[in-house]
Design a protein around this nucleic acid. Structure first.
Lengths: 189, 189
DNA sequence: ACCTGAACACCGTTCAAGT
DNA sequence: ACCTGAACACCGTTCAAGT
């Protein structure tokens, strides 16, 4: 039975989740799928294109939520960013993959369209919403990769119980501060 | 005359500045310096270590400034971040290199010690200053890499005059919003 | 102390040729 | 349409041996 583009992407996500980005090579992927390397290039134009698809798949894990009421919008944003964080933090190098995808195709975070929408509910004008989202996403990805490496360094060490606390606290701090700053930017109507 | 670790690092910065991270390989570096690849590994433990040194060198371009007065501290921070941005934006993939260095040795941004200091002048307690800095640095690096790629995509296109405007505006927006949020976090004494 | 030569174990991408 | 086989032009790292 013929290999599918879907299968290819799923296998890539699998290797990433289990072994990290360094092990996610086209050759390794081909081995896993019992095909020759060249076969992959029939389904996918390049490794970069594949990584963009992988990033998209990672974002799918957090589904588009319902629109909140005006006064609840900031808390809804904070909650959903936190959800995204916990989803991505378990996948090695997920932040790097997202950053790569984002820099190769800026519309990679279109799945986060709800973020734009929620920000506008908060009072952010349509023109500024993309910039506000950018700040939040930068913080999300930056926090994740910062913490994933500290987890990697502590891999040899005993797993000091609750070593997530610093990363979590730092992440929450940033979200709170940024949201406050964004809302303060626009005088209440 | 013997090769120096300094020369090695400088050559690396040179290749990065001229051709980008993709061309910065140990073999290319060796060719440029008229030595065999193995020679590099006498001066440097690994490519990663070299990149950390490169990142440090990039940060050196903005020297530690004098401490501002309390009421001017936020503007001083904004001004210096802007200076850092203009210094790094001319160097291809500089943000990626900084992020790599940061994730390999978290004290990579010790050169930005002034940022901690300035934040404390703004009223941020010592315990929170590292988190506040993290948010600002994430925004700085995220903005830079976002814009560098849009420059790379526009490389084939005609250089639409003033195409920096969006990146600049988006960067300034983020700095303003984050600083406002940070300051609002702490009731005035 | 500093470097060469050569190897080891990999990469991403392309493409004629097969089925 | 989908894949193989094989090549091209690279990687980072190690290490005996040279000077």
């Amino acid at each position: 039975m013929a290999l599918t583009r879907e299968q290819l992407i799923d296998a890539a996500v699998g290797i990433l989740s289990e072994f990290g980005l360094a092990d996610l090579s086209m050759r390794r992927l081909a081995r896993e799928l019992d095909v020759q390397v060249g076969a992959l290039y029939w389904h996918v134009k390049s490794k970069q294109e594949l990584l963009v698809e992988v990033a998209a798949k990672l974002l799918d894990s957090v589904p588009k939520p319902d629109s909140p009421a005006v006064n609840l919008a900031p808390m809804a944003i904070a909650a959903l960013l936190s959800q995204l964080r916990t989803a991505l933090i378990t996948i090695p190098d997920s932040a790097e993959v997202m950053q790569l995808a984002q820099s190769m195709r800026p519309d990679s975070l279109d799945p986060l369209g709800w973020l734009l929408e929620f920000l506008e509910i908060c009072g952010v004008p349509e023109s500024d919403a993309p910039m506000a989202r950018h700040v939040l996403v930068n913080h999300l990805l930056g926090s994740i990769s910062a913490q994933q490496e500290s987890l990697a360094l502590a891999a040899g060490t005993e797993p000091t119980a609750g070593s997530d606390t610093w990363g979590q606290e730092s992440f929450d701090y940033g979200v709170r501060v940024i949201l406050r700053g964004i809302i303060a930017e626009y005088p209440k109507n």
